[in-house]
Amino acid sequence: MMISACVLIRTERGRFDEVVERMKQFSETKSVMAVLGRYDVVVDIEVPDYDSLGRVVMKMGNIGGVVFTETLPELKMEVE
């Protein structure tokens, strides 16, 4: 049962292309896009459990050019 999460990222000015490429290299990444608005990059990831979610988001936060991340983890609901 995979858990999705939406990772909102702010990058250093002009580095969002580089960050987008690096995010694509994560096996957990399902989709990544540079965006307009209050964030620069949005990444949809899928992980096996909440523990690994923390590890992946930490690694993403350490990518060069990333200055801020906000993660919205999926709220697993019984009713589907």
Binding site: S4, C6, K30, E70, T71, L72, P73, E74, L75
Partner: peptide
Amino acid sequence: KVYPVYGR
């Protein structure tokens, strides 16, 4: 894709 989330 759509899912409910924790957070803001």
